[in-house]
């Protein structure tokens, strides 16, 4: 498994993330890159209270994450970067390289969203953004580590109504 994982999960830290990713891959550093969470002390405290002992948590705005990532701050760690939305993933797409495993775990059902899997519901704009990212890098739908991942292919077909 790659040392750095970018995961889109609109619930950020929850049961599947702790058991399915942190403990499974012995990840020692969790980064939440989200502008709203970074500004909310209570939310920061709540997420910090959910992690098992020994796991470092960094909560940064998307801009701060980009600068910290460029400074090689996470070089020695096994890192899980949690992003709340596809828009946030798109904002950091310049950070993605072949050493990073990009997956979409959970994007909840909302109005005008298309069911991509039983945990991922996306709107057309989000689908277009993922299509753009996957022109250069693989993007998977992957709920928990021990379940098979699904590589996103022919995604534009969804927009054309073929799936």
């Amino acid at each position: 498994m790659k040392k750095i994982i970018f995961r889109v999960d609109d619930r950020l830290i929850h049961g599947q993330v702790i058991e399915g990713w942190l403990k499974h891959f012995k990840i020692n550093h969790v980064v939440i890159a989200n502008d709203k969470v970074a500004q909310n002390p209570l939310q920061k405290m709540i997420y910090a209270s959910t992690l098992p002992p020994g796991t470092e948590l960094s909560i940064l705005s998307v801009a701060d994450f980009i600068s910290s990532f460029r400074s090689d701050r996470y070089k020695k760690d096994y890192v899980l970067v949690l992003l709340e939305s596809v828009d946030d993933l798109y904002a950091i797409k310049s950070m993605i390289n072949d050493d990073i495993y990009v997956n979409i775990g959970c994007v909840a059902c909302r109005e005008h969203k298309i069911e991509v899997s039983n945990t991922v519901f996306l709107n057309p704009d989000e689908i277009k953004k993922i299509c753009e990212i996957r022109q250069d890098y693989e993007v998977f739908i992957h709920k928990v580590a021990w379940e098979p991942s699904v590589e996103i292919k022919n995604f534009n077909y969804i927009l054309e109504g073929n799936l």
């Binding site: 619930r11 929850h14 702790i18 939310q43 098992p52």
Partner: peptide, 17 residues
Amino acid sequence: KIYSSAFGALGDSFFWH
């Protein structure tokens, strides 16, 4: 919304695992 995911994390780790 915040507590739903946080308690999901705490509850799954402790009760299930």
